[in-house]
Design a protein around this nucleic acid. Structure first.
Lengths: 331, 331
DNA sequence: ACTATTGACGAAACCGATTTCATGACTTAT
DNA sequence: ATAAGTCATGAAATCGGTTTCGTCAATAGT
């Protein structure tokens, strides 16, 4: 492997000049510069990143901590971030934390050992404690959660989004609306619940307790609870799934009971993960793609990495967008 | 940040002893070792990986090159590999190559510069050239493609798998079978075609040319071509999609024409990506999950990394499994 | 014309862990 | 008891870019 000294020798200059010519931090005689560039090409010189990291104190590595790559909501985020990272000259280290606090903690530590230049943290756990030691120590941006720590957080406005969803159902004449809520009693579910209730209150509709289904752990769970719910005497006219993932199970349950969507029951989701548009019928759901905010997210991280400082608290909320398909009918 | 010299000073020994004590490559007086361990704990010493990489030429990093994380077939692989890597003390660098040879080449180079200890290459391109320079230079395992290079390749037996699929259709009385083939005229598609034809021949059925649809670039493409195909006078009784991704478009096209699956037309897929089981009706498809071979894949890589040698050519084929759901009817 | 300033460039120090080499203490063999 | 071998350990070289420092030459200023 050709090193900078080989290039220097070949071009008849010193290693320092090669370094300067390639980094562009100082003026180098055009003639020499050309010779250097030629030498680089001929010798196929590639700077040793380890050596560079060692001297400069960075690694050109970014850590991306996500809850679960198998959850179809995340691949898009990963791809987005990886694209930005690559464009900016960074490589991406992927950490799949499985929503496990211990695993997340381990990953934070590993990333610190690797001297990553920054961390993109797609939060899924409720704890704050295990993140604290790294706040202020490594440039970081938190996505999908709002921390009360000195970190920039970027999050969808869950209250507004859920309000939008339920408002749409109410506007379409639905009054008996079931909320299907996944297992974690976490920040975003609380906020979504809050937004949903706000819409109900505005319409003067009381939310029946038996229409609030919690602790759904999987699609199968969603399936079972849906069957249970819809066999009751007074079944709701619409169900609002707090995430799209559960909708697969919900659809299955509804089909199983011989009911039709949306004629017999309307379904609305949250996330707009890929493929819900291919369900029969295509799902109406709330999209909060990171596509639009990806630039902001990465920008915030990049600025910190560039200035080698950790940003203070700053919360950014973005709005979701209701994607109307065919799973909700007007009553 | 505490360095090895700080630890050495604190423990009253030399840096070399600290290094030896921590790596365990040589015997160190138990008493001193204890002091060193204490110093490490108290000073919260974390070895600088850049320095270590520079000297040792290794990094405890594994590069994972995949074609497209948005394609639902890959997240499972990524998760699997990441799990194994973490367990073995490696961090995973994710490279999303988008099926672009140039990008793949860049990633290979970046990974080499980063001194990754190994590369897991989920191949998608047809070219061999851009991979050659790295064969023998870095421990590598190739998945999903069989190279004629000195690299271990692990691949599904596409011929056998496609044979299985078409055999199943023939057994169910189908004779007019359309093949929907995605855009790339690549190895695995050729093999699948070969397997499909083998089954046809065994049943003495001739494959009509107009039933072979090629160059599908997206779901939308699949949708259009399906509509076109099924409006013909003699429409097939079954379609075999060479990958599940296209099935979403195919279903859409069939529904659009008011046809029913499987009553009017049977559909069979390939891959068993998540969610095809939630289609209406659930898709019968061929599963070739890496779950089962993941251990083998990672094992082959780990052995190379451990012995710091690159393995020679060795091809491993594994079998797919037909997952029978409800999208194929018996004629 | 002589000093001060600027600037391109090379020599050498540096980042921090590893590893080679040298040393001196201690053990074993004759 | 003396020579040879073993072994824990420290000093210093090393990995390969980057960067500081110093030099020498050319330009600017008085």
């Amino acid at each position: 492997m050709a090193g900078i000294r080989d290039v220097a020798k070949y071009a008849g200059v010193s290693p320092s000049t090669v370094s300067r010519a390639l980094s562009g931090i100082a003026y180098v005689e055009p003639e020499k510069k050309q010779k250097i560039l030629d030498a680089v090409r001929i010798l196929n010189y590639k700077p040793n990143l380890a050596a560079r990291s060692l001297k400069k104190g960075g690694s050109k590595l970014i850590g991306l901590i996500i809850p679960d790559i198998m959850n179809p909501y995340y691949p898009e985020i990963v791809k987005c971030m990886e694209t930005y990272a690559t464009k900016a000259g960074y490589s991406m280290i992927l950490c799949d934390a499985l929503g496990d606090i211990e695993k997340e903690k381990e990953y934070f530590e590993t990333l610190q050992n690797l001297f990553v230049d920054g961390i993109l943290y797609i939060a899924s756990t409720e704890s704050v404690e295990h993140v604290k030691p790294f706040v202020g120590a490594i440039p970081m941006v938190v996505v999908n959660r709002t921390f009360d720590l000195d970190v920039p957080c970027i999050n969808i406005d869950n209250v507004e989004a859920a309000y939008q969803v339920v408002h749409y159902l109410l506007e379409n004449g639905h009054r008996d609306i079931a909320f299907i809520i996944n297992d974690k009693d976490c920040q975003y579910n609380q906020e979504r619940f809050q937004g949903a209730m706000k819409a109900m209150e505005e319409y003067g509709v009381e939310q029946k307790n038996e229409y609030v289904i919690r602790n759904i752990h999987s699609e199968d769970d969603a399936y079972e609870k849906t069957v249970e719910l819809l066999q009751k005497e007074n079944r709701p006219t619409a169900v609002f799934a707090f995430n799209d993932y559960m909708v697969f199970g919900i659809y299955q349950g509804i089909h199983e009971l011989g009911l039709k969507i949306p004629e017999d029951i309307s379904v609305i989701g949250f996330d707009d993960i890929p493929f819900v548009k291919y369900l029969t019928p295509p799902l109406t759901t709330l999209r909060h793609s990171l596509q639009d905010t990806a630039e902001l997210v990465f920008g915030k991280l990049e600025e910190q990495m560039r200035t080698a400082t950790c940003a203070r608290q700053s919360n950014t909320y973005f709005c979701g967008k209701l994607i109307i398909r065919e799973s909700v009918r007007k009553i």
